[in-house]
Design a protein around this nucleic acid. Structure first.
Lengths: 230, 230
DNA sequence: TCACGGTCGATTGTCGACAGTCTACCGATT
DNA sequence: AATCGGTAGACTGTCGACAATCGACCGTGA
């Protein structure tokens, strides 16, 4: 056999640690595990039918990713999100995406624009179908694509962490922004500014777009009260 | 007894995991552990006289911090630093510090300026004494202070990770920048621009300062050849 | 000569047991 | 009643042993 790693999805051999890691991370950013909720290693282990060792390793990683909070000898809880956290999250996000756009425009590669336009079409399509869930995913995909196109590994890895928290915030939001097509159309001028290699305008648009979103969310955010979040 | 946590440095009770974490992290950023070098859990455990469990947890964390690279079932090595990594590191650093300065200037707090000027005086003092090691530490302290003054926890945590890698790069550099007083004086106009609340000038200076440093380092950087780095 | 299969040693992954630490509770003392 | 000291239970931290995986090595057979 020569290569062939990709198909058959590589059988099984992912360490338990990583499976647990993925599962917990997903549970957190989808809001299934609520901020403030405490995680008991033994419970998780029993629940998953494995020992505590891989669980502990996963928890340490999630802690260093900022999704959990661990106090030695005390326990680990899902990190709480204050209004200040939201504001910080979106302000930093704005900085990172601006940086990405600057790099994309500097490269002036028409292919990039086509990729982004394709995203917009998909977004509009989902919006017209009233498909909120998929629309959100595509919206995420658009911003992920901006980062990816910027071709900057370090930025990418930091973005990954930031984007996780954004997903978590979205999941915890009870109020839903229902003006779907508006969300989709919000992205069009950004794309066109990039297509025109108009850096100042693209930066102004993306920063305004993200700041507006952040403010909208921060505005209605109620800081979590003490309690175990359950 | 009422509080009193801070003095007496809290006796002992830091988990082994964290002690190992600190020790390994320091060894990496100081260049004692060379990029490419592989770390064997059992060896480290024997060397430190403890079991593998806390070692493994520390390694996972360092991996998620980007200082180590782990391949399941294969092992963990100190992450290699290519020239591209250096360029990415400094370009991102520039973005983060610019953001910090924008926030500092937006606040217009004269105390901030005084803190920065004090840093400059200390730097100049060390430079005149020809004290390279301390100068580097103070230089680091200056940039750390910029971030701290920006009062942005998320930025702070990302900066911490980035700054670690910067330290590692500095430690691995064989060529030393010997023009000490010049380094110190480089910071003065930045401080003065902040003092004057002159945002465009402050941003232009910091970006140029960091880009110049980055290019200087990237220029002489030799990409690591395969091998275990030892 | 070279591709193939199998085996072996080194190393990582997982487990169950035990040690250490913290909190909550409770009774004694003032 | 309020404070103190001590104890019990729940949980995290650490350990040593065992299982699983990988790469290198080595014959074997065409």
């Amino acid at each position: 056999m020569t290569e062939l790693t990709s198909p058959l999805s590589q059988i099984n051999n992912k360490p338990l640690r990583e499976q647990v890691l993925d599962a917990l991370r997903e549970a957190i950013v989808q809001g299934d595990l609520k901020p403030g909720q405490t995680l008991i290693e033994a419970d998780l282990a029993a629940q998953l039918g494995i020992s505590r060792a891989p669980i502990r390793e996963a928890l340490q990683i999630l802690n260093s990713e900022g999704l959990l909070e661990t106090v030695p000898y005390r326990g680990t809880t899902v990190r709480r999100l204050s209004r200040q956290d939201i504001e910080e999250l979106y302000s930093l996000r704005s900085v990172l995406e601006s940086f990405a756009i600057r790099r994309i425009i500097a490269r002036r590669n028409p292919d990039d624009v086509e990729v982004l336009r394709e995203h917009f079409r998909a977004m509009l399509d989902r919006a017209e179908a009233g498909d909120l869930k998929t629309l959100n995913e595509i919206d995420r995909g658009f911003h992920d694509t901006l980062i990816r196109l910027s071709d900057h590994q370090l930025l990418q890895s930091i973005w990954n962490a930031v984007a996780l928290r954004v997903r978590q915030v979205m999941a915890l939001l009870n109020e839903r922004n229902t003006d779907l097509k508006q969300i989709a159309y919000n992205h069009l001028p950004i794309i066109e500014a990039i297509a025109a290699w108009d850096e100042p305008r693209a930066l102004q648009l993306i920063e305004q777009h993200i700041a507006a979103t952040g403010e909208l969310i921060a505005e209605g955010w109620v800081d979590p009260e003490p309690g175990d979040g359950a």
